[in-house]
Amino acid sequence: MRIGEVAERAGVSRRSLRYYEQQGLIEVRRSPSGQRLYEEDHVRRVRLIQTFYAAKLTSATIAELIPCMERSPSRAVAQRAQAVMERERGRLRVAVKELSAAVTALDELIDATAAHRPGPRSPRDSDPYGMVTGGSVEGEDPVRARVCSVT
């Protein structure tokens, strides 16, 4: 497989593939004329690398995991890689917990904001975004007229 096909199938640029090779994240055979020759496994590996990058792992960290992805590493290499994997898994679990808390807070804020949609507007209100700014309209619930603001 040629570089363009791998790049397209893996959803990365050709430049990224060359970078991954420079960083030792993928190994590529070359044709007698020097062209890179990729295999199906490279697509899977590049997608995995992209997943790790999305999780904020560095190239150096990913490189430490490579021996466990493709062959049976020595006991010492496997132990070092396992320590790295466990460290990163712990970091990711904390990040997932924090992101989950942020989603919950946003859900609550969205619900609270939806409950505060302003009713009929007074002619003296000039806010183009529909927020009541000139006080409540007669007969309107003043609590519903308030709009939540986030700072």
Rank of each mutant, 00 (worst) to 15 (best):
D125P: 02
V137H: 15
A114L: 13
P123H: 06
E27K: 10
G90D: 06
V143Y: 14
Y38S: 02
T113Q: 11
I62L: 00
S16G: 08
E86S: 08
E27S: 08
R117L: 12
M85F: 02
R91L: 07
G90N: 07
L65W: 02
Y53H: 09
V46W: 03
I110L: 13
L17C: 01
S13K: 04
L25I: 07
K56S: 14
V147S: 14
A95S: 06
V137K: 15
Y38H: 04
V94Q: 11
Q23D: 01
V147Y: 14
P32W: 01
L37K: 13
A55S: 00
V77H: 04
S13I: 00
V96F: 10
R2S: 10
R45G: 03
Y19N: 07
A112T: 14
R36D: 00
I49K: 01
E8T: 05
T133P: 04
R117T: 13
Y19C: 01
Y38E: 01
R14M: 10
L99C: 10
R144L: 10
V46D: 02
P32G: 05
L17N: 00
V12G: 03
A60Q: 06
R87G: 12
I26M: 07
P118N: 12
Y129G: 13
P120R: 12
A112C: 11
I110K: 14
I26E: 05
R29W: 04
V147A: 14
R2E: 11
A115K: 11
R45F: 01
R14F: 10
R47L: 02
P123T: 00
R80I: 08
Q79F: 15
S16R: 00
R14N: 13
V147N: 11
A95F: 07
E98R: 15
C148Y: 13
E98N: 09
Q79E: 15
V147I: 10
S16D: 06
V43F: 03
E40W: 04
G139T: 03
V43D: 04
R18L: 02
E27H: 07
L57E: 03
P67C: 05
V43G: 06
A114Q: 12
S31M: 00
S136T: 15
E40N: 08
T51K: 04
R45D: 06
G119R: 04
V103L: 11
E64K: 07
E64W: 00
S149C: 13
A105R: 15
Y129N: 14
E86W: 14
V28E: 00
L99T: 10
R9H: 12
F52I: 06
V132G: 13
R144W: 07
E70H: 11
R18I: 08
S74A: 07
G139Y: 05
V94N: 10
V103D: 12
V132P: 15
K97H: 11
L48V: 08
I49Y: 01
Q79V: 15
S72A: 11
E108V: 09
E40G: 07
S31W: 03
P120N: 06
L99W: 09
D107G: 04
V143T: 13
A76R: 09
Q79S: 15
Y20Q: 02
R44S: 09
R117Q: 13
L92R: 02
A54Q: 07
P128D: 09
A76E: 13
D111S: 12
D41K: 12
